[in-house]
Design a protein around this nucleic acid. Structure first.
Lengths: 166, 166
DNA sequence: GTTGATGCAAACTATTTGCAGGCAG
DNA sequence: CTGCCTGCAAATAGTTTGCATCAAC
């Protein structure tokens, strides 16, 4: 009883502190959104979030979804990225996750990996350039194991590559 | 005289071959565009290209600019990327350049670097995941040497980070 | 001639913003 | 109460597309 299993107050708490520090308000919509964001699979987009809430009869306007995602990114709870599509993708930043991505151009699989040696190399490069890193993005596009065997339509691949927003 | 300094027929040639291989036509507009692309500074966007041509009284419709850039990306002469802005950036792929970027969130400087050891590490990671890499993107955002000294507006930086399309 | 290319304008998509009324602090 | 928030709809921005005409092969 002393330490009840805390669901995910950590995120809520961080968001709350962030809002207070900026004299912003803790509204019901914002709480719903934080909760839903951390209930989503790793990668989602603004519309998926909007839909998910609508289905739970907790409709929140798209404008508010965007406005809140922006706040969440600013406070570091969410990461924004566009993995080649023309619209932004988001992902909740859980604990101390810090990973890069392998993205299959054929089946869209996203393989996440974390390599301390790669991180170290990056830091070294930054040091050499006297650059202070604050954020990084590392995506490798290609064919996953499964899709290397399968027949792939080269023209489709070529088109996908041309559409990459790297 | 034996080997006249070749301006940039290499790119033109590659594009020409690419077009022929797909039974596409080599039009005046397409040639103008290839030339202008390779005359642009490293990073440019569709509109800059469109404007540049307009000023040389060689106006080509935006639609054609986009359509041609798409072809150039497909044939590998141009790389597409969105370095945090909401619109795509492009860069001509010169010779064997292959680099990653350090991007300053304060002054927008783009520092390019190439590290064979980083490339090697990437290849090793792909091998471990049985992934066949075809393209990659690696961006590190932060503050360049000069901007670390300068006073920076934290709220502006926070906003810039939140707008990153990584 | 046949087939693809261009320009124009309209269509689209993702995202942002102005505004009037509503609610947290 | 004051000021930030919300939803709505209209506005943007970048990019794509349909169509009639035109040029490359």
């Amino acid at each position: 009883m002393r330490k009840p299993k805390i669901e995910r107050p950590e995120e809520q708490q961080r968001f709350e502190n962030f809002l207070r520090s900026r004299q912003l308000k803790l509204t019901g919509e914002r709480l719903e959104l934080v909760e839903e964001v951390f209930g989503q699979p790793h990668h989602f987009d603004a519309d998926q979030l909007h839909m998910a809430l609508k289905q739970k009869s907790k409709a929140i306007s798209r404008a508010t979804v965007y406005r809140t995602l922006d706040l969440l990114v600013q406070c570091g709870l969410v990461r924004k990225s566009s993995l080649g599509d023309q619209h932004a993708h988001y992902e909740a930043v859980r604990s101390d996750e810090h990973h890069d991505h392998l993205i299959c151009l054929n089946c869209d699989a996203i393989i996440e990996f974390y390599r301390p040696d790669l991180e170290a190399l990056q830091d070294q490069i930054c040091t050499e350039y006297a650059f202070r890193p604050m954020h990084h993005s590392h995506h490798i596009f290609g064919l996953c194991k499964a899709c290397q065997g399968r027949a792939t339509d080269d023209s489709v691949l070529a088109h996908r590559m041309s559409q990459l927003n790297t």
